[in-house]
Design a protein around this nucleic acid. Structure first.
Lengths: 368, 368
DNA sequence: TTGTAAGCGTTATCAT
DNA sequence: ATGATAACGCTTACAA
């Protein structure tokens, strides 16, 4: 109980209390090294400051320095809430962590849609925030165009489009896909099908690229008939399994022994389809998913998948933005966060080599 | 493509463009009614403003008006994340919704503990935010004391302590408990036990009060032996059922026919305990929970409970804070959010007298 | 080593 | 109906 400090003390009172000028107070309190103050003066200032309970006004300070030590986070979601979206939530967690460490304030801009967000760009850029983190999961360039023209700092989170005007932080889809396919190859698979996701998602293209690279690295030729386009839903996994099984009905030796699904939903559908066809997973057929979402463990068997560290995405994004604000990071930077392989119960070695070889012979046969 | 507006235009350029003074621009753009400007002047100003792409600087404006149109939300959690705590998440959603509607910025202050928060009070009150929303679930007065001395606006969310210096918004525990007990009474129960939660939680006292009120309103005398203290965990529900059954072993006609549990965890334990004792729920015994948490539907039977609208708590809290900032709401205000009865499968009419007696006899048998 | 004064971009209080 | 001009609280050249 130090009494009542009703209204915030300004730098003026400190100056008066300490019998020094305003600038002296400012410099001493900000620890400016360009001027050396007498120890006695410094003491007087500190004493006065604590006596009057001085804490600099962030707004005035911000106006003078053109730096608010605050970053904006803009996100749009049709979901009912921030909290109901695990991606947004995890991302935000990472952002908050870094901002707290670096003593930056986090201001949240939530919109119902990116159209709304676009309309509010001026308010994001009104000087309140030193930079912007945009959690913009799908390709939506209108707002990016709007921002890219301005001189402010901003980074795109969960996106990795190739644009020299902006910095992006995203999960490393191609490396993760490559890793996953390599995992299947190491298990002994050589005939690996790919069950793709939505055609217009960047992630789909990236995962496809990872698949391609892993195959190429292992010297396994690309086979168009192993690639099944689809969408990020279980139904597509299920249906494509039917298609696949039908396609290779007459030539079992060419039939894939594993499926790389572009997300867990597809994988879940594929597993169900396989089982419905009487094929055991993983003994007879391996299936892997992606993302380690709820689908991966929603029922048996639990799906082998790649786990993204979304929280880390948020952290790195916040760091990147801060670097950008401090002038250490220019536009064009691309940050990728590696994923982690989660081995569960749907991937194993293909059926025994003997069988395998036999199948491969059969494979040639079917070609003619 | 209007060209490149590299750096934000200031009110100066607008004034120059429009050939008017700074104050005219400010007044016209802010729609001040105290001065009537010629339509021509207004037009010129608007035209100039949009021509140079003018948007007022929020920081300068904030400094001048002493109002940032921003509110701070401070929360401390030991949880790994904002998103993993359903209470915090829902609350935040409500806050964000209202702030968005009222065009207020939301700045997030997350701390690892309330001690940390206490240490950062000065930074919350540095002028950046016009008021503070504190999501402070349990009694933790140090920080409240710290804030109550200051002249800023703040409201406590999820708390309803009686302190004239502050405004609180919380779930209406006593009304909800009263409502739930009345529900049991309406079903025909008159012997209703209460399984309490942690002794030191405010919610426990409030729910007990609701129980007391409902009984009193129905003219049912208070029976100390029907009240079982405990903690908010399933184990306490289970154990207290054992206790209760034991206590009334020799006098079945006095045994309660229903249990009002102070949360769903306790209720889940109670249901399990009853079933373990061979008693059917709800046919022979009713059990109700509170909070509509995951426990309520984690297994069969799904528990009849009271659902809180936490999102609404957030909304009302944000509204209360804004009212407070606008001077419309003074300290001492108490806002309560009503809960909703969720009828599920654990509450029914008590056994009919005849049946009841028979069952009670059977009950005695199983016990020996 | 310390002080003076000019901003920072707005709003608000006076005059005119 | 408009325009100077002084705050707002702080930082930062530039002086002394």
């Amino acid at each position: 109980m130090t009494g009542n400090e009703e209204v915030a003390a300004s730098i003026r009172e400190v100056a008066r209390e300490a019998n020094v000028s305003l600038s002296t107070v400012s410099k001493v309190l900000n620890g400016r090294t360009d001027a050396k103050f007498a120890a006695a003066t410094r003491e007087r200032v500190f004493a006065a400051a604590s006596r009057v309970g001085y804490h600099p006004n962030a707004v005035a300070r911000g106006l003078a320095r053109k730096r608010m030590d605050a970053v904006g986070v803009v996100m749009a979601y049709d979901q009912p809430s921030v909290t109901s979206d695990p991606y947004l939530g995890a991302c935000l967690d990472g952002i908050l962590k870094v901002n707290k460490e670096r003593r930056q304030k986090t201001v949240l801009f939530t919109e119902d849609s990116w159209d709304e967000a676009l309309r509010h760009v001026p308010s994001y850029l009104d000087g309140h925030c030193d930079g912007l983190l945009l959690i913009i999961p799908r390709t939506d360039s209108a707002i990016v165009e709007e921002l890219a023209g301005r001189s402010s700092c901003f980074v795109l989170v969960g996106d990795s489009r190739d644009d020299d005007r902006l910095v992006t932080v995203d999960v490393d889809n191609v490396a993760a896909a490559r890793r996953m396919v390599r995992h299947l190859i190491k298990l002994g698979h050589t005939r690996i099908a790919a069950f793709g996701g939505n055609h217009d998602f960047l992630s789909n293209a990236q995962r496809m690229e990872g698949y391609r690279q892993a195959l190429a690295a292992a010297g396994i030729p690309w086979r168009e008939e192993y690639v099944f386009p689809g969408e990020y839903f279980p139904g597509h996994g299920y249906n494509n399994v039917g298609l696949l099984l039908g396609m290779f009905e007459g030539r079992p030796a060419e039939r894939p022994t594993a499926i790389f699904c572009f997300n867990d939903a597809i994988a879940r559908g594929a597993v169900d389809g396989l089982r419905a066809a009487g094929i055991r997973v993983p003994e007879e057929f391996s299936v892997v998913g992606f993302d380690d979402s709820a689908h991966a463990v929603s029922s048996e068997p639990h799906i082998t998948t790649m786990r993204h560290d979304i929280r880390r995405v948020g952290e790195r994004a916040a760091e990147a933005l801060l670097d950008c604000i401090d002038g250490g990071l220019g536009p064009g930077a691309r940050v990728y966060i590696p994923a982690e392989l989660v081995e569960r119960c749907t991937a194993a070695a293909p059926p025994s080599p003997a069988t395998s070889r036999a199948e491969e012979r059969g494979d040639e046969k079917t070609i003619r």
